[in-house]
Design a protein around this nucleic acid. Structure first.
Lengths: 167, 167
DNA sequence: TGCCATCCGTTGCAATGGAAACTATCGCCC
DNA sequence: GGGCGATAGTTTCCATTGCAACGGATGGCA
């Protein structure tokens, strides 16, 4: 009789989801970074801060962190760049002396409008050749993946510090 | 009569495809990097090199670049790390004096098997809660996005040097 | 009230990543 | 067959990134 094939099939890197995701995200990110840097002189981090400040009005850096999924250091640096460029203004937070409220300056508002328009255009370009259903499915899948990865990551990190000794 | 709403709806960062993609990819990449670093002491770049060398046998660094979508500097560093760790071996390429052929060392082969098994497990974990159809749709969409972004990027870069003057 | 754990945001530092320069080799065309 | 542009891979340099430590401020609780 023929030998049953115990031969495992080769591992295809290009069919491995984390790899595919990384390649797609990197390419799009690069494309995106190039355009925004060329047209507005903004980095992606700065761009994201503009987007959430434009949407939520006066908010603190820590809220920006939550809404952009960025680290506080990154937000801090992006904000100081935008302040220097005159696109943001900051004011002390009456409710908390440690915090500062960020908002768009008048020029920032103009730039924000342009930025959003450009983003919509880019999103359209990317989605070209995808119908609405497919796009929604993709976005849903990405959201679930991100959430799932978040859970796995948290579960992973948990066991790392094996019960710190009582002080 | 009621004012027609010219009010454009706010820009939702969390519904913007490049952002979603970036968040999902970053989380998964971090998760992945942590596990491989902990279990095998490998970076993602090293991991990718192991994967393609394991699959294709003796290949040159430049081919590894193509198959991993990584820059040659990154491949060079990953390869030297793996050589130092004794997971790869290199031999001069008889067909080209500049190139070196990379292949797995005996220990590299063992590690490769473990790595692949682990990757399959992780892929399964990530895909949990997604049926085969959905997964295939996601992968297809990612592939098309990556390809599309590649085209846009190339088209973008093109116009940058506006026809260099003849020398 | 006075103290302490906690939190906001910035800064310093080490690791990472990519662009460009460099060395060695190739292959082609004259 | 000799020279020259192109290619393989490494090294060098600088920008970006993230972690950890910090100074300033808060709020709850004794």
């Amino acid at each position: 009789m023929a030998r049953v094939d115990v031969v495992e099939e080769p591992f295809l890197l290009e069919a491995f989801l984390p790899y595919q995701l990384s390649v797609a995200a990197n390419r799009i990110s690069r494309l995106f970074a190039r355009r925004y840097s060329r047209e507005f002189g903004l980095s992606i981090a700065e761009w994201r801060v503009m987007a959430v400040v434009g949407r939520f009005g006066a908010i603190t850096a820590s809220v920006v962190c939550e809404r952009t999924e960025m680290d506080k250091v990154k937000v801090s640096r992006a904000a100081s760049g935008l302040l220097a460029a005159g696109l943001l203004a900051q004011a002390p937070d009456p409710a908390d002396g440690r915090a500062r409220l960020l908002r768009l300056s008048p020029r920032g508002q103009e730039v924000h409008r342009a930025i959003v328009a450009r983003a919509r255009l880019l999103a359209g370009e990317l989605a070209a050749g995808m119908d609405a259903v497919e796009l929604a499915a993709l976005q849903g899948a990405l959201a679930r993946l991100a959430a799932h990865a978040g859970v796995l990551e948290a579960a992973d990190g948990e066991g790392e510090a094996p019960a710190p000794p009582e002080p």
